[in-house]
Design a binder for these strands. Structure first.
Lengths: 198, 198
DNA sequence: ACCTGAACACCGTTCAAGT
DNA sequence: ACCTGAACACCGTTCAAGT
């Protein structure tokens, strides 16, 4: 798809845009002005659209590496000793990364329901890798049996979202993260499950 | 402030705008086009700005009643038998209302950090009323002692946010609500507190 | 094959001109 | 005192014209 048989100027523009986009999205979030990106990359609007037909396509190019890295990181942590601690650690790293771009958690959440989105594939792969950490912790009886990877992902993303909503709530995000994780731990179940081995 | 000594046409315009705004914000969310509202209310842009100098001011007019009602509702529920169930009930009603306007949870969360916002006062009052429900449930030992009203409000709003991000996650919001509430229940604490009376 | 930038249809916000 | 709508500075998206 991104075959290397591009014209030299095309290749250069592609990279310029991506580099500038990284900066601008850092500044303005995932809703950054595409016009601003084109301007600062010194290319015409059409050039930006040629390389990245949608905003999502641009984000995908910006995030794929990161998603792949996080998926791989989940693989590493699967071998770690404490399954619950491994999950917690992964989620912490995920959340740290999510905070680099404002609006990123929203983009990831909407992409779940939108299979046509270019972000869908790489984001799903990451979620699935994380899901295996959840399942392992469940097999160890450390996480409630009635949740799945999607639940955990959604709740932790939501904590990331909270942190974006202003300083007063942002300063609580560490605590909120702990509350959510604690809440998902086995033993928190109020009535229906987990009552055999006491 | 909204003294009744307005000119008749001003009074009429104010009400027209508010009525139309309710519909448009229902359709498009809190980021609805102000131009569209003015157009459909058949007033000039200047008229809209005269009555509602900022988008937040318009939202405030749209939401004040609701916030006041929810604050009053919390007062009612303070007298209810089961403190934990009262809290759960209030949060459920809050969440139901939040889903009427897309973007509403975000507006409420950002308003927390922005004391200058017209939404700040009525939203804070509501949160404080809800906070008393939290404290009562804590006094009864039903909610973790290391959370406060803001934590609960943020987490439940975050569940509302999740529901806005697409059908795949929206259909889980009931479950996620339960997970969060369960997680905040006393007994979920992993190590540090609550270990005296067993 | 690729790039450019004008053109189009939208925004939010302001403000001179009207009654 | 209040209303109007044009004006301004922005968007995102498309596409004819160029090389």
């Amino acid at each position: 798809m991104t075959g290397r048989q591009q014209r030299a100027d095309a290749q250069r523009n592609y990279e310029r845009i991506l580099e500038v986009a990284r900066t601008v999205v850092e500044e303005q979030g995932t809703q950054a002005s595409l016009r601003d990106i084109a301007r600062r990359a010194e290319v015409g609007m059409g050039t930006l659209y040629r390389h990245f037909p949608t905003r999502e396509a641009l984000l995908e190019a910006l995030l794929r590496q990161r998603f792949d890295r996080l998926a791989a990181r989940a693989g590493e942590l699967e071998g770690a000793g404490d399954s619950h601690e491994a999950l917690r650690q992964w989620l912490r790293e995920f959340l740290g990364g999510a905070s680099t771009y404002r609006g990123l958690t929203a983009s990831m959440m909407t992409t779940i329901s939108d299979e046509g989105s270019p972000l869908h594939a790489s984001c799903s792969a990451m979620r699935e890798a994380a899901g295996r950490l959840v399942e392992r912790a469940q097999d160890d009886g450390r996480i409630r049996p009635d949740v799945d990877g999607m639940d955990v992902f959604a709740l932790v993303s939501a904590v990331g979202w909270i942190a974006e909503q202003g300083p007063v709530v942002a300063e609580r995000s560490e605590h909120l993260f702990s509350l959510v994780l604690d809440g998902l731990a086995a033993g928190a179940v109020s009535g229906r499950a987990r009552r055999s081995a006491d």
